[in-house]
């Protein structure tokens, strides 16, 4: 146990964290590019057209990974906020600070790609559906967190207030995820993140999983790059 604690405190020390990032950053970038290339090639050129939607369903290969990332970035931020509030670990605050604009962009892109998919399939770019509305609220939460960070001049106070607001905003995450189950929505129900096997053909599922991994690695690479900058200050 003391050995584990020592290893943990070594990892969260700025010097070792920067060293860890330098060591793995390139590997993460290469893995990200491989996943995205595989996903794009198979998703756009090899996977067959959908029998109902035709080719337009291929927007799924950017829309679904972005939607998953918009939620998982917020989960990471909430965990970091919790760790920062309880143990006052500065790196956790840095990760939360870096993640907020990335998450906001992912969420805005989720809504954009969703509307690009909605127009040819539903006949409208936007509808006040539970899933779409809760995702829009998520963008506003991200923007509020970024605004609070820059509005408060005292850095320590800004970090604490942002952590509390992040934890309060986390209530929206299960609402976004379960909105399609709790309410009768135009947006389809879950096809991958659900109990039982995914209801999607394997040839369409593989590139989607590769894209999800690619977008996660892209987020990881961005966090590593910006964290290294923050640590060198």
């Amino acid at each position: 146990m003391p050995h584990r604690t020592a290893a943990f405190s070594k990892l969260i020390s700025p010097k070792h964290c920067a060293h860890f990032i330098s060591r793995y950053q390139k590997i993460v970038l290469i893995a990200c590019m491989i996943c995205l290339l595989y996903g794009l090639i198979v998703g756009l050129f090899i996977a067959p057209a959908d029998y109902q939607q035709g080719n337009v369903y291929r927007i799924m290969y950017v829309h679904v990974p972005l939607a998953i990332q918009s939620l998982s970035v917020y989960v990471v931020m909430s965990l970091c906020a919790f760790i920062f509030l309880i143990w006052k670990i500065k790196i956790a605050d840095f990760v939360a600070k870096i993640s907020a604009p990335i998450g906001a962009v992912f969420t805005a892109l989720t809504l954009f790609t969703g509307s690009m998919w909605g127009k040819p399939t539903w006949g409208t770019y936007w509808i006040w559906d539970a899933r779409l509305t809760s995702e829009l609220i998520l963008v506003f939460i991200y923007i509020a967190i970024i605004a609070i960070r820059y509005a408060i001049i005292d850095d320590r106070l800004a970090s604490r207030v942002c952590a509390v607001v992040t934890l309060l905003g986390a209530i929206n995450i299960p609402i976004v995820h379960y909105s399609v189950i709790w309410w009768n929505t135009l947006h389809q129900g879950p096809s991958i993140l659900k109990i039982g096997a995914p209801s999607i053909a394997p040839i369409m599922l593989h590139p989607l999983l590769a894209m999800i991994a690619g977008f996660f690695l892209y987020y990881l690479f961005l966090v590593m790059t910006e964290l290294k900058t923050e640590l060198s200050r």
């Binding site: 927007i59 892109l109 998919w117």
Partner: peptide
Amino acid sequence: MIFICVAYSVVFAVMIIQLIFALKKKSRHE
């Protein structure tokens, strides 16, 4: 087809801009 092109080009353009900003910030500090 137009919707796929618009969606993919906007997403990847934003991602590349985001990446350039992060790398620029890093190089400015080094």
